[in-house]
């Protein structure tokens, strides 16, 4: 039975890393406009959970449902609606910021120069657009990765420590972007240690225990 109005649902997810049973029967559901914050101490399995959702790690049991249907056998369809921001920024140092977006975000959606510029402007690094990604600061690289996430135009955002390396303005930017995404009917699941939308009404928590 599908939880009322839930767009994404995880049922009794189990995962192992090596011989450690990290996730034990983790279940949750997310509705449109909701932000699920996964918390817990280091090594508890936040990243593992997010990678299982993305299909980057195999789950040893349990089921993932998207729009009420199991995603088994429909990975590519689900992936297209999923935007992932991992620990790694997935940038090429030798390519400029613009080229990075063109060659990676462009795989999902057809981009024009204007969309790329508008998105760079949104994350505040338009003036760095023609610099090689190598020469950007750590925070600017994170912003560029955020631009890629925005261009993916996905309904479900999976964010692994999205505010790493970001300054206060950057954290505020991430919060704005998430709220904006949720207001357009999107969903977000994030693992975060820092404060992130802690007082927002859209927030729900999922505490993982060791």
């Amino acid at each position: 039975m599908v939880v009322d109005g839930a767009l994404f649902e995880a049922r009794e997810i189990n995962a192992w890393r090596g011989d450690r049973h990290i996730l034990r029967d983790v279940s949750f559901s997310v509705r449109p406009g909701e932000f699920l914050k996964v918390t817990g101490p280091n090594g508890v399995g936040k990243t593992t959970l997010l990678r299982v959702i993305c299909g980057l790690l195999p789950a040893e049991g349990g089921e993932l449902l998207w729009r009420g249907k199991s995603i088994r056998g429909r990975r590519d369809e689900f992936n297209f609606e999923l935007g992932h921001l991992g620990h790694l920024n997935s940038l090429k140092g030798d390519l400029t910021a613009r080229e990075n977006l063109k060659f990676l975000a462009g795989l999902r959606t057809t981009l024009t120069a204007q969309t790329i510029d508008a998105t760079l402007d949104r994350v505040g690094i338009l003036s760095r657009g023609d610099l090689p990604a190598r020469s950007l600061s750590a925070g600017q690289k994170r912003r560029l990765a955020l631009a890629r996430l925005l261009l993916a135009d996905a309904a479900l955002w999976i964010l692994d420590e999205p505010v790493t390396n970001l300054d206060t303005a950057g954290i505020r930017l991430v919060e704005e972007l998430i709220v904006d995404h949720l207001e357009h009917g999107g969903l977000a699941i994030a693992a975060a240690h820092q404060r992130l939308l802690d007082d927002a009404p859209c927030l729900r928590r999922l505490e993982l225990e060791p």
Binding site: N79, L88, S90, K92, L104
Partner: peptide
């Protein structure tokens, strides 16, 4: 992490 994004590109 580029291949990760390729895997997830749909």
């Amino acid at each position: 992490g580029t291949t990760e994004q390729w895997v997830l590109s749909g």
